[in-house]
Amino acid sequence: MNLKTLSIFILAVLFFGLHISFAQIDSIPKKEGISMKIEQTGVEKERDFGLDLYDPLGPSKAAFFSAVIPGLGQAYNRKYWKIPLVYAALGTTLYFYIDNNNQYQAYRDAFKQRLTGQEDEFFGILTDQNLIDAQKLFRKNRDLSLLFVIGAYILNIVDANVDAHLQQFNVSENLSLKPQAEQDFLTGNLSYGLSVNFKFN
């Protein structure tokens, strides 16, 4: 598996993880709820609408924690399963950056030795043009790997921030949002709509 294929795979995994964080909204322990008393057949029943207090600093804290220590924002959001993904992405991209940089330096040093008339480790194996081409290739791969390292780091921060935002939405099971489609029998056209339902148990 070459560098480009592996880099594309890593980005796909990161975007998939980010997509899951958008799709999955986990409930968090409630700080305070808004309750309402409903009179039903002479008996007062208290309903908890599951509305949590909004913490405006929550997303900022999660993003800051992930910026300081990658994965800490995910721990703050209680998404512990994402921490290995963060470090796998950062570790893999860092490994390829270091490896490509070492290869670049090795061919560069060999080329410098050859210019001074000394024998290098590739003497008799690679020509001068081969050394130049190898330097260009590994320098390009090194720079590309650095971009992926930065991208993985930024995605780690964005994921923590977005996750913290999503956790503050109302996730009460009594609320539902349902799409509707009805056909007009006179014209044969479909009418689309959206309904918000609140269920009283």
Rank of each mutant, 00 (worst) to 15 (best):
I69P: 02
L14H: 04
R78Y: 08
D99Y: 03
N130Q: 14
G91F: 10
P179R: 06
Y80Q: 01
L177H: 08
A88I: 05
T116H: 05
N77T: 04
L94N: 09
R108F: 07
S27P: 04
F169E: 07
E121F: 04
F200S: 10
E32K: 13
Y97E: 11
F9N: 10
V13N: 06
T41P: 00
K79Q: 14
D55S: 12
S172C: 05
F9D: 09
N201F: 15
F198Y: 15
S60I: 13
G124C: 04
Q103F: 03
I83N: 00
E119P: 01
G73V: 01
L18C: 07
T187F: 10
E46T: 15
L146W: 09
I8C: 04
E46L: 15
N201Y: 13
F22N: 13
I38D: 05
N101D: 05
Q118W: 05
L14N: 13
Y80I: 11
P29L: 10
Q24V: 12
F15T: 08
L155D: 04
L166H: 12
K178A: 15
Y104N: 10
L177C: 03
N189E: 15
L144S: 13
S172T: 15
K136S: 07
L14F: 01
N201V: 13
A23S: 14
L57E: 12
I83K: 01
F22Y: 14
L166Y: 11
N102I: 02
R78P: 00
G17E: 05
K31M: 10
G71Y: 03
L186N: 14
L51S: 06
A12T: 10
T187Q: 12
K112H: 06
D184A: 09
A110K: 08
F169I: 10
I25Q: 11
Y97F: 14
I157P: 02
L177I: 14
S7M: 14
H19W: 11
N201L: 14
H165N: 11
I150S: 10
E182C: 00
S191M: 08
Y104P: 00
T41I: 07
E182W: 09
G33L: 11
I28A: 10
R108M: 08
Y95K: 01
Y95E: 01
A152N: 09
I34C: 05
N174A: 13
P29F: 06
T5F: 08
R78A: 02
A12K: 04
S27D: 13
F15G: 02
Q74M: 03
L166D: 02
A62E: 02
I98H: 06
V196M: 14
A160I: 02
H19S: 13
W81L: 06
R78N: 08
G17K: 02
L3E: 12
G33I: 12
K31F: 07
I154A: 11
K199H: 13
N77L: 03
K45R: 15
V149P: 01
Y87W: 15
A181I: 12
D26C: 00
E121C: 00
T92P: 01
L186K: 15
D55V: 05
R142A: 10
A63D: 06
Q168M: 09
N161E: 05
D120E: 04
V162E: 02
D26A: 05
M1K: 11
I25P: 00
Q40Y: 14
I69D: 07
Q74H: 13
Q103M: 05
A106H: 08
A106L: 09
